[in-house]
């Protein structure tokens, strides 16, 4: 039997800043779904932001789905393919983008996993716990969307390739 592709779902943001924690909350929900369904080959990570060591973390994966909050003009959520791109060293910013991580992974480890970024629309960013109601609703829609894509291990990557939406 063909080995299913390995998947990493990586949510990032600050859960102490309301909707900035969308990515982290999404990972928690997906972890529960994977546990309950006994679904194989899916691993998870969560952090405040992406950083250089994540280039190593994605190197041995076939499919990586980054999940982040977004205040861009999108309706609820959208999925975009991540292409490797260079990024200059920013002023004092310690976080880096998903495309930067992919580029670094390719440079350092000669690997180029299939990567996507799930953008979850957020609205509130204050020092408070918990997601806003609308953000939570967006997360649930994205959760349903992703579960459908990941339910069948063998076709996971193909399903993602044809489902980029934004």
């Amino acid at each position: 039997m063909k080995k299913p592709p390995t998947v990493l779902i990586y949510g990032y943001g600050n859960p102490g800043r309301q909707d900035d924690g969308l990515g982290n909350a999404f990972v928690e929900k997906m972890e529960q779904w994977v546990r309950d369904g006994n679904i194989s080959s899916i691993t998870f990570d969560s952090n405040y932001q992406l950083n250089i060591e994540d280039a190593e973390a994605i190197a041995d994966k076939d499919l990586v789905i980054f999940v982040d909050a977004s205040d861009e003009p999108i309706d609820d959520f959208c999925l975009t393919r991540v292409n490797a791109s260079e990024a200059s060293v920013e002023f004092t910013m310690h976080a880096v983008s998903a495309s930067f991580i992919l580029h670094l992974c390719n440079q350092l480890f000669d690997k180029y996993p299939e990567c996507y970024l799930l953008h979850l629309k957020g609205y509130e960013w204050e020092f408070k716990e918990g997601l806003s109601g609308k953000a939570n609703s967006n997360m649930l829609k994205a959760f349903d969307f992703l579960c459908k894509k990941l339910r069948h291990p063998e076709s996971r990557i193909d399903l993602f390739k044809e489902s980029v939406e934004c």
């Binding site: 943001g13 600050n14 900035d20 920013e90 002023f91 004092t92 910013m93 020092f127």
Partner: peptide, 23 residues
């Protein structure tokens, strides 16, 4: 930029999401 960076100031803490920090 190099002068400020020597002190490694943490002025971008607390939150982030998609977004850049142009100079």
């Amino acid at each position: 930029e190099v002068a400020i960076r020597a002190y490694d100031p943490c002025i971008s803490c607390a939150t982030h999401a998609l977004g850049k920090m142009p100079l």
